[in-house]
Structures are given as C-alpha cells and as structure tokens.
Design a protein around this nucleic acid. Sequence first.
DNA 1: AATATAATGTAGTTTACTTACAAAAAGTGG
DNA 2: CCACTTTTTGTAAGTAAACTACATTATATT
Lengths: 282, 282
Amino acid sequence: MPNFLERVNEKREALTASEQKIIEQLEKHEKPFLLSMNELSSLSGVSEPSVVRLYRKLGYASYQELKVALAQEHAANGPSYSSDNNEIKESDKADVVFEKIGDQLSSAMMMTKEKLNVDQMEEAVGKIAKAARLFFFGQGLSGTIAEDGAHKFMRIGGTTLAVKDPHYQAIYASHMTEEDVVIAISHSGETVNIIEVVDMSKKSGATCIIITSNPNTTLAKMADILLLTQAQETENRSDAMVSRLVQLALIDTLYTRVVSVGDSDIKKAVNLSRLAVTRMKK
Amino acid sequence: MPNFLERVNEKREALTASEQKIIEQLEKHEKPFLLSMNELSSLSGVSEPSVVRLYRKLGYASYQELKVALAQEHAANGPSYSSDNNEIKESDKADVVFEKIGDQLSSAMMMTKEKLNVDQMEEAVGKIAKAARLFFFGQGLSGTIAEDGAHKFMRIGGTTLAVKDPHYQAIYASHMTEEDVVIAISHSGETVNIIEVVDMSKKSGATCIIITSNPNTTLAKMADILLLTQAQETENRSDAMVSRLVQLALIDTLYTRVVSVGDSDIKKAVNLSRLAVTRMKK
DNA sequence: AATATAATGTAGTTTACTTACAAAAAGTGG
DNA sequence: CCACTTTTTGTAAGTAAACTACATTATATT
C-alpha cells in the first residue's frame, strides 16, 4: 500500500487547484491527523466536498482512513530519531538496560548510515578483494573487533591476520608491500601504538583503512580510506559499547560486499569454510 | 506520553466490567483504529457512553485521539516485525547492505527484548557479581564474543578468563567449584565441545549461564540460566552476524548491571581500569 | 457566442461523537 | 434488612463531523 506522498506524486498531474491547497495544509500541519474535515477545509480555504474528492482520488475509502494513514506514517518517521532520554541509570533493571542499548544502537546505526560514503566503502571493498594480505590492527576492546573481522575474512581464502600485540604489529607494518591492506580499528582515534603502526604501514606502501568514531583525530587524518562510525556526542559510558557494535556491523558490511563482488574462487572458498565449520558440530 | 497498554495497566484497578470488555475488543481487533464508537460499543456489548468514559479515564481527550494513538502504536510495532524484504542481495551496494543489517539487527533486538526474562537476567547478574572466578567459553566466532566479554568483566577486578581452546576449556571445567560461574556462548547450541565442557563444569558444581539463539538444543537444555537471543527464523547468511551482535549487546547489559548492583569495590575497580587504559593513549 | 466539460460550492442528510440525566446495581451505616 | 449513598451503566437527546445530491461557476471547445 503506497504511502501518502507516493499517492500524491502518482496523481500529481490530475490535481486541481483546491486539492493542492489541501495537500499543502496537510504537509505543513504538525498533526494533520487530528484535523476535522471542517477545520481542514477552512484552513485550506476550500469547501468540505473538495476534501472528500481529494481523499477519494488518492484511494482512501473515508476521511478516517486518510487520518489513520497520516497518523501511522508520522509515527513511523518521527520517534526513532528523537532518542529522548536513553541514558542508562543505575536503577534500570536488565530489561530496561537492554532496551536502551538497543535504542542507542539503532540511532547510532542510522547516524552512521547517513554519513556513510558509498564510494569509499566500495573502494575499500575493491582493495580488500584484491589484497595479497589483509591485516586487522586493534588493541584492547578494538582488538577483539580486529579478531572478529579476521575470523570472517579468513573464510575467503586469502592471508588474513588479526594482530593485537603492538610489537607484532610493528614488525608486520615494517614489512608490507603495496599489495597489502591494513584495517586499523580504534574507538578514540588516539591510541598511540596504532597511530605509529599505521604510519609505518603507509611508509611501507600498504593501503590503510581506518575505522574510528572520531573524524578529528590523528588516526583519522592518516587514513587512505576513512570509515566513520557515528555515535552520540555524549560522553556516556555506553557510547564505546555502542560504537563497537556499529564497527562490527560495518565490517560485516565490508565482508558481505567482498563476497558479493568476489570472483568464483572467493565463493568457493566461503563454501569450503562453511563445510569445514559444520564438520566441527554434531 | 505513555502508550495504550501502559495506560491500561496503570488504571487496571479502577476498571469496571464494561470497560474491560471494551479493552478486550480493542486488543483482539486487528484494526481497532478503524472502528467507530458505535461498532466498538456493540462489539463489546456495552453502551457508547461507556466507551467515552473509558478513554477519558485513560487520559485521551477524544475518541479520535484514542484512535490516532492506537493507529500510531500499531504502525510502530507492526512493520519492524514483518521485515518485509530485508534479505541482502548480491547487487546491493555497501550503503544498502549496511542499512539492511541495521534493520535486521533492530528487529532481532526487539524480539530478544520481548523474550527476555528480567528475573533470569538479574539472577545471572547476582551470580556474576558474587563469583569467585568467571569463565567465558566459546569457539570460532563465539570465541571472539567470549573474549570481548572477558575483556569487559576483567575491569571489575575479579578473576575473569576467556577460554577458546577446547583442551583448556576441559581442564578448567574439571577444576571448578560452586563459586565459579561459566558463561558459554554458541550461536547454534550444538557445538559438541562446548556441550561437553558445560557438562563437566556443571558436574564440578559451577553455575552455567548459556547464551544461544536456539532454545531447542542440547546446550540450551543444560543451562542453569538460559539467555536466548532471538533472531529471525530464516536461514539467511546474515542471521549469524546479527545474532552475534545481539549476544554482545546482551553481555553489555549484564556488565552494565553488574557494575550498577556492585559494591564500592567493584566501582573502584572499574575506575582504576579506566585510568589504566587512558594512560595507554596520548 | 453557444455548448460541453470540469471544478467548486451550497445545502441538506446521514452518521458519528458527546452530554445530561435517569435507572439500576452495589455498597454502607444504622 | 432497610434507607441511604455511591458507583456503574444505559437512554435519549443534542451537537458536530462526514458524506451526498445537486446547483453554480469557471474553463475549454467548436
């Protein structure tokens, strides 16, 4: 069932002057679904039957139906953004905490999606698909993200490593070539070791993809390809948790795309990996 | 503004017999927001003024307002469930893939939230807070979740370990006491090694908290405390990715709660850990 | 300019919503 | 257990909203 605006667009040619006046009112009004037909018609400066003819033309059976449709569409677009008061309190029981994390997460996913540059993402996908070796660098909690990422990309058959130890990172970084790709992960963007290691990797000629939450950091500025995960601006303790989940989803996206664009070799490799894992169960 | 069901619950004591009949109809009807007052009252077998008195009591200014509220709440709950066409296609570019993962994720979070048993969660929190040692067991991708969890709980100062190697898991499991707590993670719930290790841990007297997506599995049935992450029933390749994110959010919830209910020692420990990590940056 | 066609409005009808008040039911104190 | 109060429910009438039939005006066509 098409929504209100789609219906309007479909019939745009066939709309009369007074019908357009009515639509204008419906679009400008904050709560159009609370207007009576009388109010709407006088606001628009037209007669009531004109309103009737309009909603008929748009395919609604009654004025009530139009109002219900408007109400539902307003509900669907509105509240998800207005994360009114999601801060987690000590008194919140587990179910409330989980719900609030969920709300923060979906708002962070939405913000990230809006800032996401498709071309950059696809460029990253291309580089990864062609890479001779793929390195995930991360420390602390970002280290577990690195490992998760490596675990996934391992399945496409190439050489993929998660490196969490700064010394190991440094050694790998100093021996890279133009064919290598580094994915460096840091929530803060200011982890000293990671900055150094990315610097070394770049000097060795590797492509550096940076995943971080903050664009105004040393690490972000060094990126060949920068993938930003936007979280809320607050300094809640839960921000780090949420941004980590978004980063994982971002890496999932990269992986899904690499498999999609990959040649038949990659797809064979993925299937082989799945079989291998299945043998470990049952 | 509380939603319809919250309002009903708040006034539950004060509801008369005919008011309950009306509510019953509103809950059972598929599209209650399209009913006229006349239809609703005759369906419920009461008079129209009884309907008026009910919505007044619930805090709505007019029957229209009640209908609009119901329509909006149906819109908010409805479509996110019916994940109409979230399946990721090979032709989807990175931004679309990310968006679909986001949609699947929030629907999975919602489903998990509904199945979530607060008491079980809080019981788990209590056990963890008092545990002498806390073990995270997981293999493969669930292993990285285990590590992530251990990384977090490490900060509260106790003995916390992520064990991914089945041999190590077996050794630890055979030397546990009643004071120990095991958190075992498995997406499928049928990973042979994990099942064996949980069995050993239980025989040693440890409390076993199981995090899995499937309630009808050997592992789920062994749980002292079972925490289910509901994903969609489909066998999409993305299900595992999504359920892993939900599992992480679940562990975040446990952690947040443990810190909240924890005594001053735990809070001191968390602050110490934060200082320690900060020293590693800048 | 005459006629056809489309657009809009007037006035009235029907339906939906609301109110005032009365009847019935359920408690309460003597 | 009866007179009285309070609560619950319904009847009937009023008001406002939604809809319809038809008249009027505007626009286009020949």
